[in-house]
Design a protein around this nucleic acid. Structure first.
Lengths: 334, 334
DNA sequence: TGCATCTGGTTCAGCGTTGTCAATGACGAG
DNA sequence: CTCGTCATTGACAACGCTGAACCAGATGCA
């Protein structure tokens, strides 16, 4: 009982294999009657394309590579899940590639490790300039991060999100806001998130205080969150709120605060960014910003499908919104 | 600049394409000198196999489908990551399939949605008897869960793990142990985990108390953990420890306890199972059981590779160990 | 010396699909 | 009535690779 092929369908529909192929691919110039016969025959024999054959013949594999730094961080896992489901809904199949460092991420984007895919969606962990100056041949969509001008990119509402969370803290009476950040090349915060933070402060006429900024070594939850927060506490700096670059870091920071006996939110308020599942279940639940992940996923998949459909032109940027999700970790002190 | 093919390599090595193929596949009967020439030529032209071609020709796609119910639950995400990396180390590529319910899980195992894979590793969320009575044609490895006798299965140390955690609670003075469980068909706890729990109690001559058992609706962290725990608290039952079926459930339970003002570990001890990343960062950190995930992953991949290598015979079972990871959530009350 | 066997390699066909291009037939225009 | 045109379909050759079968030369053995 072998798997049926195009020829089997063709025999039943009394047309040539090529015509079946044409109908399946939605090519024009196929009489309505033929079209129907073919689809019925497909049903009848239970045909499903052999991707390998199609790929060999030049029709594309229908496979998309999703490149993530890891899966143990909820942000990546949750969005990988959304992407896989959204791509499957488009009839595309997926392959997940783990690229822990910038180098492997780059190789994946450039096709070295993703040769069997028609397109790539990448969570960037490399610096854009490493891409060289020309775009890759296959469609590559960058999911989040700062746009480089080389790749189609979905940009989340980082600026407005951080502005909102900053204002929220100021609105609720906090005044000395610390920052727990990822390490950057310059050693100082930068990018849209920081700009949003500054914009929030500006509304209250407050200056950012470098003494209240701690950078972790990585985006991983433990290193930057726990250690950076511990360092900040040890420095003796005084603050009544902590803005973290993301939820993972905030979870680490929360633990550091706890160990030191600092009460959240009574002594300091704490906020994250991403609205991952775990944020709802920390103790206390974490105030965060929802970057509207589903909208990001939809935008990424839409751009990819357009590119696969032959759309050309310069790299595009799609922006999605972000909104504050206030929870107890930034509650008003008793 | 097309991608080089076998023929290109063959031209450089001055042999036939087939010989190149043989060398690449590690076939016997190839002179050492030829072998070397071929490998050098491969290097020289930068050849990498075209999987589509190989798959079409019957050589297998080298692709393994990993079937998980979801990725937002850390247990699945973390192990999917380990599996992907382990499989890549074997030169296999992976495709992740999300099967939220038993039905889709079943279809994935039976090949309906994983036709392009040479083998499958599945996190079971279906009942074994649904498989019918004959094993699938492709290698399928079951990762965790209860062995059915139909699939190669990696069994984690559930019994010993739950026995250990139960004894740990009893050793530290707890006496009335509640259970927050997943829903089963019978509505009562069952399986190795429950047996382990009972075995632990038995050592202290304590009977399990049905009034202290709460079943959630799902394995997802929110439903069973939070709701089941809330229900148990509302029932007025008295207990000084809570054994949860896994970390995710424990995280939900922790929140329910917190909301009710129950202190952990002062009023009640709380334990999980899985040793997911988040267990280390809850407040307080969660006592749990490590099922030695890496050993499970290694066993699963080893069995799969053996099967791909042509090994036949009846379904096998590989058991891995488990050990207690004591943390503050089961600390001795002050 | 003659024949079987082994070693190292080749030739050929075909896997299932699609692109190219040619073929068929109907139909309207001149 | 003939020809050109258009809509529709089919024949054929690839795509890159591997299995089966085969071949040439070297070796072993009686």
């Amino acid at each position: 009982m072998k798997r049926p092929t195009l020829a089997d369908v063709a025999a039943v529909a009394r047309v040539s294999p090529k015509t079946v192929s044409n109908v399946l691919l939605g090519r024009p110039y196929a009489a309505e009657a033929t079209r129907q016969r073919v689809w019925q025959a497909v049903e009848a024999v239970g045909y499903r394309v052999n991707r390998a054959g199609r790929a060999l013949a030049g029709g594309g594999s229908g496979r998309i590579a999703i490149v993530v730094p890891n899966l143990h961080q909820p942000y990546y896992a949750e969005n990988a899940e959304r992407l896989i489901l959204a791509l499957e809904a488009e009839g595309l199949t997926t392959t997940l590639r783990i690229a822990p460092d910038g180098k492997s991420g780059l190789r994946a984007v450039q096709g070295e490790t993703t040769a069997d895919a028609d397109g790539v969606i990448v969570f960037p962990n490399f610096h854009p300039h490493q891409l060289g100056d020309r775009a890759p041949e296959r469609p590559v969509i960058q999911f989040g991060g700062n746009p480089s001008g080389l790749l189609d990119t979905v940009v989340m509402g980082q600026h407005e999100g951080f502005e909102a969370v900053t204002r929220h803290l100021l609105d609720t009476g906090r005044r000395r806001l610390a920052l727990v950040w990822n390490a950057t090349e310059s050693g100082l915060p930068d990018g849209d998130r920081y700009e949003g933070f500054l914009a929030g402060l500006r509304e209250y006429g407050i200056e950012a205080d470098p003494a209240l900024m701690a950078a972790g070594s990585d985006w991983d939850r433990r290193a930057p969150g726990f250690e950076a927060m511990s360092g900040l506490l040890a420095s003796g700096a005084e603050f009544d709120a902590v803005v973290c670059i993301n939820d993972a870091v905030a979870v680490g920071a929360l633990r550091a605060l706890r160990i030191r006996g600092v009460r959240v939110p009574d002594d300091v308020a704490l906020t994250g960014f991403d609205d991952t599942d775990e944020a709802e279940f920390t103790v206390p639940p974490l105030t965060t910003v929802s970057p509207e992940h589903q909208a990001m996923v939809d935008a990424a998949v839409a751009m990819l499908v357009e590119r696969l459909g032959g759309e050309s032109g310069p790299p595009r940027i799609r922006r999605t919104g972000a909104h504050l999700v206030p929870r107890a970790s930034s509650g008003v002190p008793r």
